[in-house]
Write a protein that binds this DNA or RNA. Structure first.
Length: 310
DNA sequence: CGAATTTGACCAGCGC
DNA sequence: GCGCTGGTCAAATTCG
């Protein structure tokens, strides 16, 4: 991963933009369709679900809309192939992400290339069922190469490593990573049958940036009885309600996608800006949560909230 | 006391 | 084949 990772870390953040801006961004790419209502004829969701190229153009446009912003967030959607995303996705300039970085899942050759993913893990219901692989139980050797869950990474400016996103996570490991003084933490969704995982690590080049990589899709709704859920929802909606004033970082994206048809598997990401305020009083934001913006967000990023079991 | 986290060990894939 | 590295397990420990 070395070089790839470096590329990622050296990545220059493009100017930020709000999700709101992104969504309402008009496009000159009609081929992506226009749902008929609302200005956006090509949304981020389109981009994420269509092609890196499309995403690229969208992002480029987006970035150009808010040149004054200073920070940006990057998300990468790794789907499977190591196909580079660089040129395609974010264009060349500031937003360029090395092809490799995408391949290595933002660095993790491991999962990315299916390298260290344990056999069995992610196969079937999730880790639990396959724990035998390690101690004794040997998973079928010939088991097909594990299928990689699509991954999406977000670079978030935050002082806290583990950002609250509404779901419950259990930490199952932490490891020092090469070329970084910061350890990487591994989390797994605690909901039964949900094998979503996420890795959290801090950029060693910019300690204020947390790189969160989600893998898989939740097959359940947000735990509503969690304080975090409302907080997270508040964050989503708040960003919508006040583009430019709350957090522009959410979905700052430079999708790193390795291509593949699973673009829809994009999970989610968010930015916690001023985390204190976010968690301080969730109720304050509840109205937003239930408001139209929230619904709109759900509509655009259905997978952000949950994936229905087939 | 149960749940969550920590942490060292183990395993697998990749590059040399 | 060996070493390196990422990812995961699970016992021990800590926390609420």
């Amino acid at each position: 991963m070395s070089n790839e990772t470096k590329d990622l870390y050296n990545y220059q953040y493009p100017p930020s933009f709000s999700l709101y801006e992104l969504m309402t961004l008009p496009t000159s790419t009609p081929s992506y369709g226009n749902n008929g209502y609302g200005p956006p004829s090509y949304s981020l969701s389109d981009c994420l679900q269509s092609s890196p190229g499309a995403c690229n153009s969208l992002l480029q446009k987006t970035f150009s809309l808010s040149p004054s912003s200073s920070e940006v967030f990057n998300s990468y959607i790794d789907q499977e192939s190591k196909r580079a995303v660089s040129n395609d996705v974010i264009g060349e300039t500031p937003t360029r992400v090395s092809a490799s970085s995408s391949a290595s899942e933002a660095d993790h050759p491991g999962e990315g290339s299916g390298k260290s993913q344990r056999k069995g893990e992610l196969v079937g219901d999730g880790g639990e069922a396959n724990q035998s692989s390690k101690k004794g139980g040997k998973t079928k050797k010939n088991e097909e190469k594990k299928q990689r869950e699509p991954r999406v990474s977000f670079m978030t400016k935050s002082e806290v490593d583990h950002l609250e996103d509404g779901y419950r996570w259990r930490k199952y490991g932490q490891k020092a990573v090469k070329n970084s003084i910061y350890p990487r933490s591994y989390y797994r969704c605690t909901t039964q049958k949900c094998n979503v995982k996420k890795r959290v690590e801090r950029s060693f080049q910019d300690p204020t940036v947390v790189i969160t990589t989600y893998e898989g899709q939740h097959n359940h709704p947000l735990p509503t009885n969690l304080r975090g859920s409302s907080a997270a929802a508040a964050m989503y909606s708040a960003d919508f309600m006040t583009p430019g004033s709350f957090t522009h970082d959410m979905f700052r994206s430079s999708a790193y996608t390795s291509g593949g048809p699973a673009a829809g598997a994009l999970d989610y990401g968010y930015e916690q800006s001023g985390y204190g305020s976010v968690n301080a009083n969730p109720n304050t934001h509840r109205e937003y949560h239930q408001g139209g913006e929230y619904e709109l967000l759900k509509e655009i990023f259905p997978s952000i909230f949950f994936k229905q079991e087939p």
